[in-house]
């Protein structure tokens, strides 16, 4: 997948645990783990909005596009 999820980095910057973020955005820890590992097929705008609100960041801080062909 060429979309990289930098949720771990943002969590580390905000010194927040996955469990706390999961409870604050209203998803399960398992689902957040799927998202963190890049296994998710899609992200709801609603979820992205909640993550950005809690972590006080922009969607671009969490999602990053990497062109596999250039790598």
């Amino acid at each position: 997948m060429t979309i990289i999820i930098n949720l771990d980095i943002m969590l580390a910057k905000r010194k927040m645990q996955s469990k706390e973020l999961a409870s604050r955005i209203g998803v399960t820890v398992q689902n957040l783990s799927i998202l963190k590992r890049g296994k998710a097929r899609a992200v709801r705008l609603e979820t992205l909005n909640a993550i950005c609100k809690v972590l006080e960041c922009q969607p671009g801080d969490i999602l990053e596009f990497q062109d596999e062909a250039q790598d």
């Binding site: 998202l35 097929r41 899609a42």
Partner: peptide
């Protein structure tokens, strides 16, 4: 359903 379960 699989797609739904992987939509966060």
């Amino acid at each position: 359903q699989q797609e739904q379960s992987l939509t966060i």
